[in-house]
Nucleic acid binder design. Structure first.
Length: 540
RNA sequence: GCUCGUGUGGUGUAGUUCGGCCCAUCAUGUCGCCCUCUCGAGGCGACGACCCGGGUUCAAAUCCCGGCACGAGCACCA
């Protein structure tokens, strides 16, 4: 009926008709069987036999009010630390929309707070670099709010001059009381001239911190108290790591962001839904200036199961207190950590794009990201053997087996997507064979992967056959002669668990990711001078 | 308390704009099987959801009303 709108008015009659027909079909079916019905339908309308599955919309939804080539988006982090997994959502979504509409992304550093969340001077470069890693290209425009101060101060002054902004000298507590009661600040109705005098005192530093703020005049009887005469600029006398002590007055996010979005011609803002009131405040400001506010979309809060509540400032503190080794500590939810561990940026993109844009608060699992990552890297990842907590086995074998012993050729990748073989010279080295402690069982029959069935009593093993003869457990193993010491660090909540063992020393390269057979994916971070291989866990 | 927002399987998502192609998509997860001499990859299958209650309608995940739950904002932070 969705196809034949013309029939809708006859819906009632149709229903009766259909019911009788269904009844008839059922009778035929019970009399002659379903096969018969199927044959009839085959003649009548073969399509009816195919059940259509619904099609899933893929990719990002359409941006409202957008013209290709004219879309300008922005990503505006606070440079008080490097990017976290959460930030990467903003980068991925914005850059993807820019790609879809042939638009631009402005990377803007919202660094106008010198006190509560002071900028970290290194973070500017880190973030630019991380942006590039995630998206594969540089942002189209990079802006530091702190360097745009003259612009903001000019607009602030214009606002005061025009009479829709004023200097309020109430304490924050006083104003809160007035606001909640819907009453005006005593400074609300002063003339622009009076306000300009106070504004000058704010600017030159004679007015001290906390003694005054510039407010945007909205209305004191707005239903949402948060929007009533909201603060736009306040006094901060701290030094700013980028521009020093040049400015005594700094804009707050709502003002700075609103002005800069307009200056940059931003057409679409995608932000967290915690910023919904920010949108409303800014719209009121835009009305004063007579500007058109960008289209705005929101996403909900994201929680990563494996990581509890991490904040940038919290991490900064913990790093300072040596609880973590740095921003790239493998237990931290930072992009630095993910990169260090060997995650692929495409996997990160796929992951966020799959989640898309929704205002729901979500809890996500690293497992999902890991699954995306495996798909990206598996085919290009070489296999190696790593034996944790090695146990030495003394092997013996018969004359017959001795005659057929030959070097093993093990493929770098079972599907051959990584070319080449590793050669294991077994004949002369079989006496020093190692298996994992966890696989060791003092009385068992095992299959040494790709090599032989053995039976084991204590540490004495006998080769029963080179061919696989039964379903006995397959374990991985290593010859001491082709191994070197290695250590694998695995992040586990707030701990790092480290496994010592021996790794197959065939062509190991720093920075490469390997799949340790029967263990998982890991990256070689460093090969130490003494030959020990330091590895970091990626995922299973 | 005030203001705003969101409810689809364990998790995440499609479908909601404009009611009918929806006995609800896809992924992840769990379980089972196949393949593979890895616990990886691949293949096949199973499991599992429209927050609740009313209403409108021939027809409701979709529209309306009322609950309930969860979340956010109410900073001289971003």
């Amino acid at each position: 009926m969705s196809e034949r709108k013309d029939l809708r008015e006859f819906a009632k009659d149709l229903k009766n008709l259909i019911e009788t027909e269904v009844e008839r079909a059922n009778q035929i079916a019970s009399a002659k069987g379903l096969i018969y019905i199927r044959d009839v339908l085959e003649e009548l309308d073969p399509d009816a036999l195919v059940r259509k599955k619904q099609i899933r919309r893929s990719g990002l939804p359409d941006l409202p009010n957008s013209t290709s080539g004219e879309v300008v988006l922005r990503f505006a982090p606070n440079p008080n630390g490097p990017l976290t997994i959460g930030h990467s959502r903003g980068i991925v979504i914005n850059s993807q929309f820019a790609k879809k509409y042939n638009g631009k992304v402005v990377l803007r550093f919202d660094d106008t707070d010198t006190k509560v969340k002071p900028p970290l001077i290194d973070a500017y470069e880190w973030i630019e670099e991380e942006y590039e890693w995630i998206t594969g290209k540089r942002p189209d425009v990079v802006i530091r709010a702190s360097e745009r101060m003259p612009v903001y101060l000019e607009y602030a002054e214009a606002m005061i001059r025009e009479g829709f902004g004023y200097v309020c000298k109430c304490s924050s507590l006083q104003f809160k009381k007035l606001r909640d009661a819907g009453e005006s600040s005593p400074y609300r109705n002063r003339t622009p001239r009076e306000n300009l005098v106070d504004w000058a005192k704010m600017i030159d530093g004679t007015m001290r911190e906390g003694e005054g703020v510039v407010r945007v005049k909205t209305s004191m009887d707005l239903p949402n108290p948060a929007l009533r005469d909201w603060p736009a600029l306040r006094i901060q006398h701290n030094d700013h790591p980028v521009v020093g002590n040049k400015y005594k007055v700094w804009p707050l996010l709502d003002f700075q962001s609103a002005i800069e979005d307009h200056e940059q011609g931003v057409t679409h803002i995608i932000r967290g839904k915690d910023l919904m009131d920010s949108t409303r405040k800014q719209k009121l400001l835009y009305e004063h200036f007579g500007w058109k506010y960008p289209e705005t979309m929101y996403w909900g809060r994201v929680k990563v199961f494996e990581f509890g509540g991490f904040s940038t400032s919290g991490m900064k503190l913990s790093i300072l207190e040596n609880e973590y080794t740095g921003w790239d500590d493998i237990r931290l939810p930072t992009i630095k950590s993910l990169r260090r561990r060997g995650f692929d940026s495409d996997a990160l993109r796929d992951f966020w794009l799959d989640l898309g844009l929704s205002q729901k608060d979500i809890s996500i699992s690293m497992q999902t990201l890991e699954s995306f990552n495996v798909k990206k890297i598996d085919s290009s990842t070489s296999r190696r053997t790593f034996v944790r907590n090695p146990v030495q086995i003394n092997l013996s074998w018969s004359k017959e087996i001795n005659d057929i012993l030959a070097p093993l050729e093990l493929a770098n990748h079972p599907e051959g997507t990584v070319k080449g073989n590793r050669i294991w010279p077994i004949q002369e080295n079989l006496d020093s064979l190692l298996i994992e402690f966890d696989d060791f069982d003092s009385n068992s029959k095992l299959r040494l992967k790709d090599f032989a069935d053995i039976s084991l009593i204590k540490n004495e093993g006998i080769i029963e056959s080179l061919e696989r003869t039964d379903k006995r457990r397959i374990i991985h193993w290593l010859l001491e002669s082709i191994s070197c010491k290695a250590i694998l660090h695995i992040p586990d909540g707030n701990e790092v668990v480290s496994y010592e063992g021996l790794i197959e020393n065939y062509n190991l390269e720093e920075g490469n990711i390997y799949q340790l057979e029967r263990v998982g994916f890991a990256k070689i971070e460093k090969i130490l001078k003494n030959g020990i291989v330091e590895m970091i866990w990626l995922h299973g």
